[in-house]
Design a protein around this nucleic acid. Structure first.
Lengths: 162, 162
DNA sequence: CCTCGTTAGTTGACTCGACAACTATACCCG
DNA sequence: CGGGTATAGTTGTCGAGTCAACTAACGAGG
């Protein structure tokens, strides 16, 4: 046949694939739900604040923050606008580069992350970490790494993961 | 301390968790992008049509279809409306239960899935399946299964996965 | 056989993310 | 040092998902 034969998934591959899709479909909702109920922000907002809180000076340039949160710049820009409206972060001009914007976590923002963190960690444990063996945790890291290499060949996101 | 000590993630757990979050964040976009470019529908629309196409009679009740696509009923209802507007599916009253709605894949819908399938499978391979060893595929299935048990304790979604 | 609670599905308002177009600064090169 | 290109970010519009409110039909109990 002229158009290449599409090399369908084997039953084992298909089963793994469908389950992975289910996880990818359901996990964000679960994380969002818990944080929304208990801390009134989305998982993405939490992750943004958390990455800032872990960085020296509680400051990060937009593009660096985008990398650490796996986000596009437009998306992050919108989110930062909302967080700034709520007084949790501030935009500052970057002294070294006039094009860049630095984002700083405010004291209120720090307090909000600190308050939300225990509940979030508990959810991460309840849904994923404590459901797996130590061996499986290691497998998750390796498998995710392999997939990320394909999803993000330039390794923009994966560089900072300690 | 009175509020339970939050039992932070170990470095290994944290690393695995962050990588998994990155996958969960990036994978949907990659799948959506490919299907949108090559077949002009979203991954969720594709999955909806695919599940219908694999069922005898190319028909499924709304709630059964929602389970198979890991979706809420409102979400599915909106999507079915759009797909019906494009002539890819039809809504039919269910004879046995007046409350229920059956969704039927039209011939045009069938043609659309058949046309989109090879490209989609190729993407699934490029991004996930071919990036992993057979052993890792098996691990994905087991790990996902364990997580789904926590995400969806009633097993609504996971029952139908062959 | 009528009422109450439950299940199935739809609809509308609101929020969030994607994409594209745009602005502004920095860097390179002749 | 003037012009062109690449980089950093912002903004507007539009499509898609969530939640809550609603309608309609089934089914169990008195």
């Amino acid at each position: 046949m002229s158009t290449a034969d599409p090399h369908w998934l084997t039953p084992a591959e298909r089963s793994a694939w469908l389950r992975l899709l289910a996880v990818v479909e359901l996990l964000p909702g679960a994380l969002d739900g818990q944080l929304r109920r208990e801390a009134s922000f989305t998982h993405f907002e939490y992750q943004t604040l958390a990455m800032l809180s872990e960085n020296p000076g509680r400051t990060l340039q937009m593009s660096a923050l985008a990398d650490r949160t796996n986000a596009t710049l437009p998306r992050l820009s919108h989110v930062i606008t909302r967080l700034a409206d709520r007084g949790l972060v501030e935009r500052r001009a970057c002294p070294e580069d006039g094009r860049a914007t630095n984002v700083v976590l405010t004291d209120a923002g720090w307090d909000a992350v600190v308050a939300a963190a225990p509940g979030h960690v508990a959810t991460a444990r309840a849904v994923v970490v404590d459901a797996l063996t130590a061996e499986q945790i290691e497998q998750v890291a390796e498998i995710s790494e392999a997939i990320l290499t394909r999803l993000d060949p330039d390794g923009r996101m994966t560089g900072q993961l300690d």
